[in-house]
Design a protein around this nucleic acid. Structure first.
Length: 192
DNA sequence: CCCTGATTCGC
DNA sequence: GCGAATCAGG
């Protein structure tokens, strides 16, 4: 496999979306994550939180960009039937519990639902954003390393699991870890 | 152990 | 230019 224009394009796109090298490699096919990373570097677009966590490289760019203005028309190549117009409230709600039915999958540790509590707007925003990139896995597709955050109403077909790569032993992806594990202090009184 | 990106260096 | 091997880290 060679780096055709299209492949490079997809690489850029996915890398820009924050997809991991391995995911990109899987998507492209015929290449390993090493190949992807190597290419990324050669292309010069390496910046992306080094390592794993989020150590933002203290890159202080004393550069004042003239004004590239590169917002190219970003037409989604593969628009999937997104049955989700844009309902932050609904989307951010992990799992509705109309009637706490059996939403427990195979006795697996389904996460502590942040019940009806309120979560920081920042975290919610991050979640609704991340959910656009979610893999939307079904219960059967979940693995030990896919985010198990439930989205939607289990009673409807509009229900899926985040499925993004979990960070490290955690059951959720970065974003969902953020809303799942909230310091008690940070969710103190929230007006309703 | 799983994963992440970063770098090196023979090809 | 390419990417496997290796490195460094969570």
């Amino acid at each position: 496999m060679s780096w055709t224009d299209e492949r490079v394009e997809l690489l850029k796109k996915m890398w820009g979306e924050g997809q991991s090298a391995s995911q990109i490699a899987k998507e492209l096919g015929g290449v390993t994550r090493n190949a992807v990373i190597g290419k990324v570097h050669r292309l010069g677009l390496s910046n992306r939180s080094s390592g794993t966590a989020a150590s933002d490289a203290p890159k202080s760019e004393a550069k004042a960009k003239p004004a590239p203005a590169k917002p190219k028309a970003e037409a989604k190549p593969k628009a999937k039937p997104t049955t989700e117009p844009a309902a932050p409230a609904a989307a951010a709600r992990p799992a509705a519990m109309p009637a706490r039915k059996a939403i427990i999958p195979a006795g697996q540790p389904l996460p502590p639902q942040p019940s009806a509590n309120e979560i920081s707007p920042e975290a919610l925003a991050k979640v609704s954003e991340i959910e656009k990139k979610a893999k939307r896995l079904t219960l059967l597709e979940l693995t030990e390393r896919t985010c198990k955050w439930p989205v939607g109403d289990p009673a409807t077909d509009d229900f899926w699991f985040c499925g993004l790569p979990v960070q490290a032993g955690k059951p959720y992806c970065e974003a969902h870890v953020g809303v799942a594990f909230q310091p008690m202090s940070s969710r103190r009184d929230r007006r309703r």
